[in-house]
């Protein structure tokens, strides 16, 4: 990493602070787990966890809360990365959602609620995890600007914005009472640009979906969606069109909007972002609701 005139570069400082948070969590909580979604933020978080405990592997498992509707590339990448890190990978799918065949086409907002929110709560309860690392960043969305690095959730996994603890210096209070659990966000102070710069400096592998390529797509309500498999329901007369697109954020493929872009390398992405004037979550369909909707999702247990 290049060196600033004095001391550490901002990336070196962000890295050191995230490692500090990860070590504190592991030292002070009974059963930590790292949420792993195979996206770019997960890539950075996993790399930081490996650095924190090197030369030992991170002393906790990875957890993927699966919706069965992620891009196919993400599943391959997930399995490969967990194996390379020498870490256990737990995959949880909400059995009720599986039984009902919940999908983004028929179930609307219930899709995210059942697979992601309920799925996460089930997995944490089932395995008795007391702290879960997540890759969320404060710059992603307005309701996250006041989120703590260490966020307390009630025994029923609810988030109460009014009862969060003051967080001072680097003194994180990792203690819980009465069945409470913690969400820990080591990337809180990172921006999207920081994530990509770090990926570039450390040559971290990421899913090819972040890079521009010709992909079969349809356009709906102003969003470009990728037809990743034959479960995608085409409307009458709708045929997939090949467009050169990439993704800024990845989720369930029928809910992740692509952007038209020629950025085919990490360096291209960084250039594109510095010139871009749209926010990262613009293409996430689940956020395109009243501006308080993310907060409501969080209160009911969404990460």
């Amino acid at each position: 990493m290049g060196r600033a005139a004095h001391g550490l570069t901002h990336l070196e400082q962000l890295e050191a602070e995230s490692i500090h948070i990860i070590r504190e969590t592991v030292a002070e909580t009974q059963r930590p787990v790292m949420l792993y979604s195979a996206g770019k933020d997960s890539a950075v978080m996993l790399h930081l966890a490996r650095k924190a405990f090197y030369p030992a592997p991170p002393p906790f498992p990875l957890l993927h809360v699966d919706t069965t509707w992620k891009f196919r590339d993400m599943y391959d990448h997930r399995d490969h990365m967990a194996a390379a890190a020498g870490m256990e990978l737990i995959v949880h799918r909400n059995p009720e959602a599986e039984a009902q065949g919940v999908n983004p086409f028929d179930h609307g907002p219930a899709h995210t609620e059942l697979w992601k929110t309920d799925g996460l709560k089930q997995a944490l309860t089932k395995h008795g995890f007391t702290a879960a690392f997540g890759g969320a960043r404060r710059d992603e969305e307005a309701s996250r600007a006041k989120e703590r690095v260490v966020s307390v959730r009630s025994a029923t996994h609810r988030w109460d914005p009014k009862s969060q603890r003051p967080e001072l210096w680097r003194l994180y209070n990792m203690r819980v009472a009465n069945g409470e659990t913690l969400r820990v966000f080591p990337l809180s102070d990172w921006t999207e640009l920081d994530v990509w710069r770090y990926i570039e400096v450390h040559a971290l592998p990421v899913v090819p979906l972040y890079f521009a390529a010709p992909r079969p797509t349809v356009e709906r309500d102003g969003a470009i969606l990728m037809v990743d498999d034959d479960r995608f329901r085409l409307a009458e007369g709708e045929t997939p069109v090949e467009r050169v697109v990439r993704f800024r954020t990845l989720g369930c493929y029928p809910l992740s909007g692509a952007i038209e872009s020629c950025a085919s390398s990490v360096a291209d992405i960084i250039n594109e972002l510095t010139a871009s004037s749209f926010s990262e979550r613009q293409a996430r369909l689940i956020d395109r609701e009243p501006s308080a909707s993310m907060e409501m999702k969080k209160q009911s247990g969404y990460f």
């Binding site: 404060r138 710059d139 006041k146 914005p161 809180s188």
Partner: peptide, 30 residues
């Protein structure tokens, strides 16, 4: 733009520390 939570907007106050990020060519600011 700077008032994050609906709970605050309802009460018309900002009750908590909010963290913002920006940068120039020389520095990143938190």
């Amino acid at each position: 733009l700077l008032d994050g939570l609906a709970a605050e907007r309802e009460q018309g106050i900002t009750i908590d520390v909010a963290w913002r990020y920006f940068e120039t060519e020389r520095r990143k600011f938190i």
